[in-house]
Design a protein around this nucleic acid. Structure first.
Lengths: 136, 136
DNA sequence: GTATCTGCAAAACATTTGCAATTCT
DNA sequence: AGAATTGCAAATGTTTTGCAGATAC
């Protein structure tokens, strides 16, 4: 649990500008896997001068510094996550929400995949979530 | 192993136009996870009147009919695969190639993920492949 | 001859780039 | 002042859409 976001960014060699702190704060506290536009819309009321370019720049920086990851579960828009520990994502095709779920480390045995140096792992599911299933 | 692609498409309720047969043939025989542009470039010499719109339309149809899947491992371009049996993908960040690998059905236990009706599963890895690793 | 399928041209988006203005130290 | 950061405007690239012409049954 990160207490002081500005201090956390400094530790990671990122100078904590207002924009960067607010963007990381938003990502870290809302586990909604937002798009660039989601982040922009959410923060615009607070930072009226914010531009999407800055959101793009900042997210790229976070990914470089390994404090955020890209989620390519969507074809059209990239989504972002401040949770860098490997976990699965489930996207409901009805409500479009993306849920997280834990993956038991023993459940995926990567030793059966030889010859590669693995740097990233992504596991995505798509379907209908329990809530949407009930409604029908 | 599909022998007659036109007949296969008919079985799936797809009228086998020249374009559709060639696009499926290409996808089925080249396991390269091509982009729309890859497919277009590959088939243009054979079908000089081909348009990218047709490639887009056709791939959407194949996905509807569940004879192809979308691979969203890339942020910028969507890739396609005629292999609809669940398997993993590995993308090398050096040579950009995408490799397939089998996943032992017992290696991923989806019973530990409750409450969802799962329709699609995707497992992607990124890193450096053996070939590129050797070169350095 | 009517449905379907194709493909051009334009539109619609998401993302990147160049650069000038702003901010921070 | 000097370096880093921000943000506007334009460019780029992928995908979608509208529609007219071509093709198939």
């Amino acid at each position: 649990m990160i207490q002081d976001i500005a201090a956390f960014l400094k530790e990671k060699d990122i100078s904590p500008s207002v924009q960067r702190v607010k963007i990381f704060d938003y990502l870290y506290k809302n586990h909604t896997h937002p798009t660039v536009d989601d982040i922009y819309q959410a923060l615009y009321p607070e930072i009226q001068t914010l531009s999407k370019t800055t959101v793009y720049n900042t997210l790229r920086l976070f990914i470089d510094k390994k404090i955020a990851t890209m989620i390519t579960i969507d074809e059209s828009e990239t989504r972002y996550d401040a949770d860098v520990v490997f976990h699965g994502h489930f996207k409901c095709r009805e409500c479009e929400k993306i849920y997280d779920f834990d993956i038991d480390r023993s459940a995926i045995d990567l030793n059966t995949i030889p010859f590669f140096q693995i740097e990233e792992k992504h596991f995505y599911l798509k379907g209908i979530c329990q809530e949407c299933n009930k409604k029908k």
